[in-house]
């Protein structure tokens, strides 16, 4: 049986797993944005707090993914819970760091003008700083997404969803005729997702970057 014959048989499973994988990544990314963006806004103009959150986020990224998923079983059990939380933690650094860098790169003369014209703190943030920082923030999301797409494969180890299950099945049945096919399907699914997300980000970047920012 060739790879394509095999794929024709289980393509429904592969498609399900791919959709689950994408959803899992988006959930992790979404949570990371919900946490990372406010933290960036609160800390980007400070000294020690900013260094501290960047340090913690950097440290999280160095924990081997197998270990992190495993450690999260104790508080969160198996399945979706630890998978989403682990991915969130990994995405924090790129999201947080780019948001902080983007906000800090806004020309101080521009924000000072905004304040001097009578804009309040929140208005300066939402109408001046965040729009100007947006291309950098978006680049952070893009990096985080690529990172999560590959790490999400580990979720299968804690009974999580996604393409990791195909890879894990392949590894578990190593030596059988279809082991390589399964692993190949899992990996190919991730590559296809990565390309699709790249295209999506390119489109979002084009549509949402304010004109006049050299985009």
């Amino acid at each position: 049986m060739t790879f394509f014959e095999f794929f024709a048989q289980n393509r429904a499973d592969v498609l399900d797993a791919t959709v689950e994988h994408a959803v899992l990544v988006l959930e992790g990314l979404g949570l990371a944005v919900l946490i990372g963006l406010p933290v960036a806004v609160l800390t980007y103009r400070t000294g020690y707090p900013r260094a501290a959150v960047l340090g913690v986020a950097g440290l999280l990224l160095t924990i081997p993914s197998y270990a992190l998923f495993g450690l999260l079983i104790t508080p969160l059990g198996l399945g979706n819970g630890p998978s989403i939380v682990a991915l969130t933690l990994y995405a924090l650094l790129p999201v947080l760091r780019n948001a902080i860098v983007g906000l800090r790169e806004v020309d101080p003369a521009v924000t000072e003008s905004a304040r001097a014209m009578g804009m309040g703190r929140l208005r300066v943030l939402t109408t001046v700083e965040l729009p100007l920082a947006w291309p950098v923030v978006l680049a952070g999301l893009r990096v985080a997404t690529q990172l999560l797409l590959s790490i999400a494969a580990i979720a299968a180890a804690v009974n999580g969803p996604g393409l990791g299950n195909l890879i894990l099945d392949g590894l578990a049945t190593a030596g059988t005729p279809f082991a390589v096919y399964l692993t190949l399907e899992g990996a190919a699914g991730i590559v296809v997702l990565a390309v699709l997300f790249e295209l999506l980000f390119a489109a979002v970047n084009r549509l949402t970057t304010p004109r006049g920012l050299g985009a």
């Binding site: 020309d107 003369a109 521009v110 000072e112 003008s113 905004a114 001097a116 014209m117 001046v128 729009p131 100007l132 304010p210 004109r211 006049g212 920012l213």
Partner: peptide, 15 residues
């Protein structure tokens, strides 16, 4: 109080 500074301090993302 009007406020004008060197190089304008204009909002680059606005017309």
């Amino acid at each position: 109080i009007g406020y004008a500074i060197q190089q304008g301090g204009l909002f680059p993302h606005r017309t």
